[in-house]
Amino acid sequence: MGVKAITDETFEEEVLNSSIPVLVDFWAPWCGPCRAIAPIIEELAEELEGKVKVCKCNVDENPITPGKFGIRAIPTLIIFKNGEAVESIVGAVSKATILNALNKVLEG
């Protein structure tokens, strides 16, 4: 399935109403670290297919959603479960760090 691009319009439907946890990667084309972690996000989407839904939100084209969550730095990764933001990671971090956060949410 890969990484699904979401917009301000589809955020509620795709993320808040999802039956499984969702990882949202807030990014923008101007941000080097965001582009650098994109392959890691793609890998996670494939490896966790069926367990976690992985989405990306371009903050340049969709300012409302990042505004709602007070995002002032990218990349920011937020994990949603049952319509709530439960974990947030700021900055370009390792795959292991993201995986740890996801596992915590999956087990919790």
Partner: peptide, 17 residues
């Protein structure tokens, strides 16, 4: 406040300001 206005990367976060 890191990620909430405190930043170490102007390229990434400048456009939010």
């Amino acid at each position: 406040l890191t990620g909430k206005g405190v930043s170490y990367c102007a390229t990434c976060d400048g456009p939010f300001f």
